[in-house]
Structure formats: structure tokens, C-alpha cells
Nucleic acid binder design. Structure first.
Lengths: 120, 120
DNA sequence: CTCGTAGTACGTCGGGTGTCAAACTACGGC
DNA sequence: GCCGTAGTTTGACACCCGACGTACTACGAG
């Protein structure tokens, strides 16, 4: 069996269109420390793509999958398969078009808070 | 009994200090449609204060109390008693100091989305 | 004092969230 | 073909969240 399109074999991931992205969903996605960290790391290296395994998260693989899915379904990141890896990238263009300045303000706020916490 | 300081009689509400405000908490507070609406209304009239009953929310009184408490405990609003009413105001000074530009970006994003939804 | 208005506290309830372990699928290399 | 690596799925779990009704408290007006 498993002729075509098992859940994992689909090789095609559902993303919300730009118009479907909801501010509340984005804020909810970013209100989790793990997910906020992921987005910060993603934004740190420009528009580069990173596999899930690139991130050093304090949770198991299955929890990691869950968090990336929340980020994708809220429209914050875009995920594409590349061989056995799943590459993740910020949807900066869509977010900037929908909510100009928001992503930068959020990233700046996160950086500021991280500096305040780590720096004492 | 109830000589002094019952929970309601305290007439003093716990607020986080500026340093205690966490970005994740603010985002979580704003990720609920009812609370986002409250903050938008609060911001619409400058720094004016409004009683809870000023807002026309699609929930009961007890749920309203809950949402205002979430906003207060996350540091988004400040609540003070004024007779039998409880006045609510945005903590714009604290938020702007902690996360410059964030609140304005969030309000602009919310306004933009509201316009897109209502305007078709 | 009594009444009305504004808001709180408490108990409850269904559903969502974040976490894990274990078993599984998909791809690339050998 | 077989194995390892990367990620998924499922089920379970404890906890939190948003909603409600009811009973309650606080203050001001009369």
C-alpha cells in the first residue's frame, strides 16, 4: 500500500495564503518562548533557509514538529522539503505587506528583552 | 467579618512593574480577539481612561473581568478604582520604553486587518 | 438604610496547548 | 537492498484558557 500521498509522503505542505494570515494567529504563534526563539534565529540570518535540526531547542523532536507546524499554519514561516530535510524560512514578504513594520518591531522587542535578561 | 482587605475590598490592584513585563505575555494577551479589540478602543481615544462597562463586548460580565485581568497582569493596561467603576488605561509609556515602536506597529496592524475584513 | 449599578469570586465545563515516548515514513548513501 | 538520518504521527497526559451562571462585595444616590 501507501501508493501515493500518505500524510508524510505528500511532500506538499499546507500554507495559509497571504490574505488568510490573521494578526491574532501571528501573535499567538509568537507568544511561545520556543517559537519566538525559532523566529529570532530565522531572522538573524537574513532570508536563509534552515532545517528543523539546525535549531538547538530544549524539546524533543515531536514537540519541535508541533511548534514548526504552528508557525507555518499561522503564516509566520514557509516550509519546503529538500530531500530528507524540511527547510524553514520567514515569510517576511507576506508579513511586511500585511503588517508593515510589525515584524521588525517584534524582532527588535525580542532582541531588546533578550539583551535585558542576559545582560542582567 | 471582612474587616479590611477582602479580595475585592483591597482597592489596590497588582500590576507588574515595567521590568517585569514580558514580551511573550504581551503577545499572548493581544492574541485574543476580545482583548485586541479592547486595546484598540483604548488606544483610539488617546490616553483617556474608560470603565469596563464602556466597552461593548460580546461576552458576559465575568468573562469581561477575566480579559481585563489578563491585560493588566501582562502589563498592557493599568487599572485603577474610581468609585464603583474601574478605570482602564493603556500603559503606553511603559510599553514604548520597553519595546519602542511595537505598540504602534501592533495597533496599525490591527487597524489594517480590521479595514481589510470590514471593507471586503 | 435601602436600593441599584459596577465589578469580583467561585465552581464548572469543553476544548486547546505543550510536552513526551514510541512507532512509523521518506530520502540519500553505500 | 539495507541502513542511518530527518522528520511525522499517534496517543497520552497535565495544564491552561475562555466561556458561562450564580452568588457575592463595594460604592454612590436617594
Amino acid at each position: 500500500m501507501t501508493p501515493v500521498a500518505t500524510a508524510a509522503g505528500t511532500r506538499e505542505l499546507p500554507h495559509p495564503t497571504r490574505a488568510e494570515i490573521r494578526l491574532e494567529g501571528v501573535l499567538h504563534a509568537l507568544s511561545d518562548p520556543v517559537r519566538l526563539r525559532i523566529v529570532r534565529d530565522l531572522a538573524a540570518d537574513g532570508g536563509a533557509l534552515f532545517a528543523c535540526s539546525y535549531f538547538d531547542l530544549p524539546v524533543t523532536k515531536s514537540t519541535t514538529t508541533y511548534h514548526f507546524r504552528v508557525l507555518r499554519e499561522s503564516g509566520v514561516i514557509r516550509q519546503t522539503y529538500r530531500g530528507t530535510a524540511k527547510m524553514n524560512g520567514l515569510r517576511r514578504d507576506d508579513l511586511d505587506a500585511l503588517f508593515p513594520g510589525l515584524l521588525d518591531a517584534l524582532l527588535a522587542a525580542a532582541a531588546r528583552q533578550a539583551a535585558a535578561v542576559e545582560g542582567g
